[in-house]
């Protein structure tokens, strides 16, 4: 078992209490919140954000940021859907390749990882600030999505693919299985491997890390590639759930992911934070969304409230740091 003591801090304890209070309030204020259906509903809804946020956490821990995950999600979802439905035909070579579900998914993952790699390469080899490099990728990947889909949704992807988004296994929805697997892997990666230690060291002090012989560029390229890959995972989940790849899927998902990371207590200046914290952050956002809908709060107010929660979380985190 992964040691809870070391992976838990004050910020997360506070988040946990906040989540508990939130759930308690919703249980009292609404009839439908404390039902099994609603529980799985919330869990399924957050699983996409969890996947992206985990990747975002890794990037933010290195003191970077990845704005491109929403667009990468859309592109990879569309690639998988398109390959699955239409295959790949290259008329000039008189070539047609059909794809199985697995093949289409792997292709989507490769593209996600590849675009992440490009982000990482730009950030390390060309020293482009992460904000700018991934902003450029945000725009490019959205453009690729539009080119690939010609602006139209790709629908009708078959039951076996749809199972990934809507199916259940051992009483738990598939997206929850997948995001859970992502979380566990990432927790082990960050707390139990050299790679994870390097991520924290680079975010904590890049100079000291370089002088200690840590391969900064390699680690960062991997981190951005993983963030791209996890965006692709999110893309497959979204596409499978809707049985459709929407060309404008995933817009502003990067902001939800950053919000989860920040609420979870990860410092945007790098080196401090945990995967568990981010998961908590994503759950808080998910429960808040769900609760506000159940309480019939206007969507406009929902945004205001979400924004305030993010601000509050960071203010509390800052005051924690000061008192340390």
């Amino acid at each position: 078992m992964i040691s809870l003591k070391k992976n838990f801090n004050i910020a997360q304890f506070q988040s946990l209490i906040a989540l508990f209070v939130l759930c308690l309030a919703l249980a009292l204020l609404t009839d439908n919140f404390m039902t099994t259906d609603n529980f799985w509903n919330v869990m399924r809804q957050i699983s996409v954000n969890v996947c992206i946020s985990v990747g975002m956490t890794l990037v933010v821990l290195t003191a970077g940021i990845d704005l491109s995950v929403g667009s990468i999600l859309a592109f990879c979802g569309a690639v998988t859907a398109g390959l699955l439905k239409n295959g790949l035909s290259i008329p000039s070579l008189n070539l047609f390749i059909g794809f199985t579900v697995l093949g289409a998914i792997v292709a989507g993952f490769l593209i996600g990882g590849g675009l992440g790699f490009v982000n990482g390469y730009a950030v390390t080899k060309f020293k482009v600030p992460p904000f700018v490099a991934t902003l450029a990728m945000l725009t490019m990947a959205r453009g690729f999505t539009m080119l690939w889909t010609k602006g139209h949704p790709i629908t009708g992807l078959g039951d076996s693919f749809g199972f990934l988004g809507t199916g259940w296994f051992l009483g738990i929805p598939m997206p929850v299985w997948i995001s859970g697997l992502v979380v566990i892997t990432a927790v082990i990666l960050t707390s139990k491997t050299r790679f994870g230690r390097y991520i924290y060291a680079i975010g904590g002090n890049e100079n000291a890390s370089r002088l200690s012989g840590i391969p900064i560029n390699k680690v960062k390229i991997w981190v951005y590639s993983i963030a791209g890959l996890l965006a692709a995972v999110g893309g497959v989940l979204v596409t499978a759930r809707l049985d459709s790849a929407q060309p404008n899927a995933g817009i502003s998902y990067e902001l939800d992911a950053i919000a989860a990371v920040v609420i979870g207590g990860t410092s945007l200046s790098g080196g401090r934070g945990t995967i568990w914290g981010t998961v908590l952050g994503a759950i808080i956002i998910g429960v808040l969304n769900n609760g506000l809908i159940l309480m019939n709060v206007s969507p406009f107010w929902q945004q205001v409230i979400k924004g305030m929660v993010i601000l509050l979380a960071v203010i509390i985190d800052k005051s924690n740091q000061k008192s340390e």
């Binding site: 050299r194 230690r197 390097y198 924290y200 060291a201 904590g204 002090n205 100079n207 000291a208 890390s209 002088l211 200690s212 012989g213 840590i214 080196g271 401090r272």
Partner: peptide, 24 residues
């Protein structure tokens, strides 16, 4: 290095993690 804070320590990390940085 000369500048301990800037180039030497990873300030927020524990002593044992700083010790093991070069010999992970």
């Amino acid at each position: 290095p000369e500048d301990r804070k800037k180039d030497g320590i990873v300030a927020g990390m524990s002593v044992s993690k700083n010790l093991s940085l070069t010999v992970i």
